[in-house]
Design a protein around this nucleic acid. Sequence first.
DNA 1: TATGAATGAGTCTTCATTCAT
DNA 2: GATGAATGAAGACTCATTCAT
Lengths: 193, 193, 193, 193
Amino acid sequence: MVAESRPLRADARRNRDRLLQAARDAFAAEGLSVSLDEIARRAGVGPGTLYRHFPTKEALFEAVVHERLDPLLAEARALRRADDAGAALFAFVERLVTDAATKADLIDAIASAGAELQTTVATTTAGLWEEIGHLLARAQASGAIRDDIDIADLTAVLSGVLLALRHHANQGANPHRTLAILRDGLRPRPATA
Amino acid sequence: MVAESRPLRADARRNRDRLLQAARDAFAAEGLSVSLDEIARRAGVGPGTLYRHFPTKEALFEAVVHERLDPLLAEARALRRADDAGAALFAFVERLVTDAATKADLIDAIASAGAELQTTVATTTAGLWEEIGHLLARAQASGAIRDDIDIADLTAVLSGVLLALRHHANQGANPHRTLAILRDGLRPRPATA
Amino acid sequence: MVAESRPLRADARRNRDRLLQAARDAFAAEGLSVSLDEIARRAGVGPGTLYRHFPTKEALFEAVVHERLDPLLAEARALRRADDAGAALFAFVERLVTDAATKADLIDAIASAGAELQTTVATTTAGLWEEIGHLLARAQASGAIRDDIDIADLTAVLSGVLLALRHHANQGANPHRTLAILRDGLRPRPATA
Amino acid sequence: MVAESRPLRADARRNRDRLLQAARDAFAAEGLSVSLDEIARRAGVGPGTLYRHFPTKEALFEAVVHERLDPLLAEARALRRADDAGAALFAFVERLVTDAATKADLIDAIASAGAELQTTVATTTAGLWEEIGHLLARAQASGAIRDDIDIADLTAVLSGVLLALRHHANQGANPHRTLAILRDGLRPRPATA
DNA sequence: TATGAATGAGTCTTCATTCAT
DNA sequence: GATGAATGAAGACTCATTCAT
C-alpha cells in the first residue's frame, strides 16, 4: 500500500505527487464531490494519468487519507513509551487539534465521509483510534484522566471537536479554548463534586 | 412554514409525509448524495410527485432540516426564561444530545453539510446557535459556566459532540458519558487548579 | 370540429374561452413550448379542465389556429366574387399583412411550426392557400398580376412576408413599405423592362 | 472561430464533424426541439462526446449557425467593393436565396428561432444584416433600388422569402420566380406609376 | 508512458397526460 | 364538471472509467 513495486521514474513520481497535492486541496475545498477531471486539471495532467496512478476515485482518496494519517499514527506510537502518560495523551490531542486547525483540510472527510467510500478508509482510521486507546488506557491507569469513560467516548468527543474546529475555525472559535474545555472535561472529577 | 395555506388533500398529505420520511432516512444514511429518484422510489411515488412537493433537492433538504430544528428552536426559546440559567443550558444541551442519539439522523448533515447547498439551511441553523448563545450568556452571568469561552467555542464543541455521537453511537460511545465530559469541561475551573 | 354536440353549460363555455385566450397569448409569446400547466394557470383553471376541453396539446393548438384562420378564410371566400380581381387580391394581401402586424401573434407558429405538430394544422392552412389561389388566378386572368408566377410562388413570398413582419415589426420595418415591395413585385412587368 | 487552438486529434475532428453534420440535419428537420441524445445517436457517438465538443445545446446550435453564416458574411464583405452596386445587392440576394433552396437547412432556425436561445445567434445574424445594409445603401445611392425603403424593410422581406422558400421549396415554389417578384419589387418605381 | 477523447449510466428536472377526490 | 395530485417517460448535462493515439 505504501511501498511501490519499483522506484517509479522521476516524472512519474512528480506526477503522483502533484496529483496527491491537487487531490488534497480539492477534497479539502469541495469535499468528495470534486470530479477527477478537475483534480487532474489542477495537477496539470490528463485524466488518464490520474487513472494510471490511482485506479479508482476511492484509491485516490485513500492515498490522501494515508498521507495525512500516517505521520499522526507514527507520532501516537512514539508516545506509547512516554513517561508521563497523562501528558502524552494531552500532547497527542493537542497535536490533532493543531493539525485540524492548521492544515485545515480533509480531517472532516475522514471523520464524516458519507456512507460512500468508507470501507478502506475506515480500516485506516481504526488504526489511529487504536493508538489513542492505548494512550487513554495508560493515562487512566496513571490517574491523569477520569475513569468513567472509555475509548469510544474519547473518540466521540475528539473526532467531534476536530470536525467542529474545521467548520467553525473561521467563525471565531479559538482552538485553544475549545481544547481547554475538552481537557478539563477529561480530568478526574474532584471527590467532592 | 408549518401551516400550509390549504389543508392539502389527504393523498397529497400522505405522499408528502412519506417523501419527508424517506428523505430523512436516506439523507441520514447516505448523506446529501442520495439521488432524488432513489428517495422517490423509497417513498413509493414517481419522481414527478417528489418534484411537485419539493421543486429542488435543496427544498427537500431544507424541509427535512426544518422538521428537525423547529421543535428544538422552540424549546430553546422556552428555556430563555428559566430560573436557573445554568440548569437551562445543561438541559438544552442534554436535549440536543439525546436527540442526536435517538433520532440519529441528519444532525450531521446540518452541522457539516458540505459547501454544497447551505444558504437557507445555514440561516436556519444560525437561529439555533443564536438561542444557544442567549442561554450561554445567562449561564455565564450566573456563574454556572466558565467565563473564558464564548458562543463560538461552545458551538464548536457542541456540534462536534453531536456529530461524534451520530457517528459513534453504534460503536459503543455512551451519550451520557460523552455528555459528562462536556458538562465538566464547561464548569468554571476550581480556583486551585 | 367546430360544432359542439351540445351547447355547453355557461361555465364550461367561459372556461373554454378563457383557455383559448390564454393559449393564444402564451403561444404567441413563448411559442409552442409553453407548458399546458402554465396555460391552465393563466386561464385560472386546473390542468384537468384544460384536458377536458382539449384532449391533447395539439388539439388546443389547432383550436387556436382555427380561431385565427376561420375569419380570414371567410373573408377570402367573400372576395371570390369581387368585381375587380386585382383589387381583391391586393385587398386580401393587405388584410393578411395588417393582421400579422396588429394581432401580432401566432401567425408564425402557423407558418413555421417545427415539424412537430403539423398534420392537422397543415390541413387547415391548406384551405387558406387554396382560396388565395383562386384570387390569384382571377387577378392574373384580369391582367392585374404578372403571369409568370403561380400560387406556390405567391404563397412563398406572402407567408415569408408575414413571418418577417412578425419578427421585424418591433425592429422598424414598416408594414406598408414592406407591402409596397410585394405589390410592385407582383405587378405585370412593363413590356420594356 | 474557424482556427482551433490546436489541430485536434484525428478522431476528435471526425466526431466533431459528424456531430455538426448530424446537428445540421436534425435542426433542419425537426427544429430546435430535437434532443441532444438523438443528435448524438445519429452521429454515432455517446452523449458525453457531444458534451465534450459542445457543452450546451446553444453552443451546438451556434456552431451550426456559424458554419452556415460565416461564408455568407465573407461573401457580403467582398461585394462591398463591387463596381455595380445594384448588381452587387442582387447578386447577394440571389446567393442567399440559392443557399436557402439548395442547402435547405436551418436558415429558418436562424431567421425565426423561437424566443428561446437567441442572444449569441442574434449577434451573429446582426452582422449579416449589417453587411446587407451596406449593400442596400450603395445600391440606393446608385439609383438601382427604390428609395422609399430602408434596411429594416429589406431585412423583413428577405428573411421572409428565405423562410418561405425553405418551407415551400418542396411544394412547388420556384426560387427564381420568387426571386423575380422580390427583384421587381425592389426596383425604383417608374415615374409614372 | 502520458494524453485527452469516448463512453454510457446516472443526476436533477420538466411536462403531457391520467385519475382520485 | 372541475380540481389538482400522480405518473413516468424524456431531456439536458455530468463524470468515473476506459481506450486510441
